[in-house]
Simulated scan of single mutants.
Amino acid sequence: MSSSTQPASLLAKGPPAALAGPPDQREPPPPRSRDPYFDNAKYLAILLVALGHVLPVVVEGSRATRALYMLVYAFHMPVFVLVSGYLSRGFTGRPDQLRRLLTGVALPYLLFEVAYTLLMRWGLQPERPYDLLHPTYVMWFLIALFVWRLTAPFWAVLRWPVAVSLGIGALASVTPGLDGVVGMQRVLQFLPFFVIGLRTRPEHFRLLRRRPVRVAAVLVFAGALPFTYWATPSIPMTWFYRTVSAQEMGVAWAPGLLRVGVLFGCSVVLTAAFLSLVPGRALWCTRLGAGSVCGYLLHGFLIRGGQYSGFFDRFPWLGTPGGRVLLVLVTFAVMTLLCAPLARRLMRPVTEPELAWAFRPDGRPAAGRGRR
């Protein structure tokens, strides 16, 4: 809320003690309690992420499975990115925030990028180099989140941040060769969802959760399912991955921009519909949202390991309708275990390390020589 809404008596007393003194001596604000709505959203979104990664194993020969795969890919990462943007609204580059960014995003990226490279060397690419600038498999999201969060203070000072981010994403979608260093094609094409999250306020989520909007969300998904089933044979999945430009998919820049715009609009509608249907109260699965990063980082080893070892090939009945349903249920169960508090505690040394020894105790930048 704006300070203008505070009583005059409070303003007359001056700033709170935690904000007194020079900016570099201010204390960080006290941690806020977790909102069960966003933990529920993260848990449900990570289930969809895993579903999108496991469905290719059984998608061959099933139009319905491919339609479900396409529908999931249309909004599951936009949901994750938008929620990440919303939860980054308070990022201003304070020392404690920078430490958290390094230990909670940068360090896990470095460690798991090496681990996934080893996995791919064991699997299908024995000569794959260690290349931290070209993220492997699911690791693109961590490096993208690192870049997006660093830019959060800049979006806060722009007058039209969403419009600017849309322009950047549109230009990226028609610029060939961007997916080289740090997966920049996906970083820029998903950027608008992050900025939308930054600009979203709590009242927007309250609006989404009103009963009429929830009814509309059910109708959106009820219509999206048959539409995707009808459209799936004619739409390449590459459009949903956002890893290459329109020209690299054989489409000129003008019609490519039109297709990207339509896809973006569909993703926004589906994302809003999904977030509208997320429960707002604490449930049995709410605490699992806090461990979604563990599920995200670990599930790729199981899926890629199963593919490289031929595990899925040993069970051809997984390609039957009953087998696909069973695979989906097992995937959800495994992801639930990977997000559980026990998994989070076991993985904390590599996903949420403290590393107090690596940082200055006072949180201030090291003093350097000034210009004479």
Rank of each mutant, 00 (worst) to 15 (best):
W230F: 14
V213C: 09
R199Q: 07
W230L: 15
P202K: 01
A222S: 01
L198M: 10
V195K: 03
P233W: 03
E203A: 05
V220W: 00
R206G: 12
F227W: 14
F227P: 15
P233L: 06
P226V: 01
W230C: 12
V213N: 04
A216V: 02
V220N: 00
P226D: 02
Y229I: 09
V195H: 03
T200Y: 08
A224V: 04
V215D: 05
L198G: 04
G223E: 01
I196R: 07
A217M: 00
L225M: 09
L207N: 15
P202R: 05
P226W: 07
A231D: 08
R210K: 13
R214S: 01
H204E: 11
T200P: 11
V213W: 08
T232Y: 12
A224K: 02
R209W: 12
T232L: 12
V218A: 03
L198S: 07
V218D: 05
P226I: 02
P212C: 06
R210F: 06
A217L: 02
P202I: 04
L208C: 09
V195I: 07
R199P: 06
V218F: 05
P212I: 06
F221K: 00
E203N: 07
R211M: 13
A216W: 00
E203Q: 06
Y229E: 10
P226Y: 03
P202H: 04
F205T: 06
A216N: 02
E203H: 06
R199Y: 12
R211E: 10
V213L: 05
A217H: 02
T200L: 12
L225F: 10
W230K: 10
F221S: 03
F221R: 00
R210L: 06
T200N: 07
R210I: 04
F221I: 02
V220T: 07
T200A: 11
R199W: 11
L225E: 08
L219Y: 00
R211A: 13
P202E: 05
A231N: 14
L225Q: 08
P212V: 03
L198E: 03
A222M: 01
L219Q: 02
E203V: 05
G223T: 00
P233F: 08
V215F: 09
A222V: 00
L219F: 04
R201H: 08
R201N: 09
F227T: 14
T228C: 13
R209P: 10
A217V: 01
L207F: 15
L207Q: 15
Y229P: 07
I196W: 14
L225V: 11
R199C: 10
L207V: 15
P212G: 03
L198N: 09
R201T: 13
A231E: 14
V215S: 09
T228M: 11
E203S: 12
H204S: 15
A217F: 00
R211S: 15
R206V: 13
E203C: 08
R206Y: 13
V218K: 03
R206N: 13
A224I: 05
T228W: 14
E203F: 03
I196Q: 10
R209C: 11
A231W: 10
L219I: 02
G223C: 01
L208A: 06
A224T: 02
G223V: 00
V195W: 04
R214N: 01
P202Q: 04
A224D: 01
T228L: 11
I196H: 12
P202W: 03
R206F: 09
R199T: 12
A224F: 01
H204G: 12
P233E: 09
P233Q: 08
L225K: 07
F221E: 00
R201M: 07
G197Q: 02
F205W: 06
R206T: 14
W230M: 15
T228H: 09
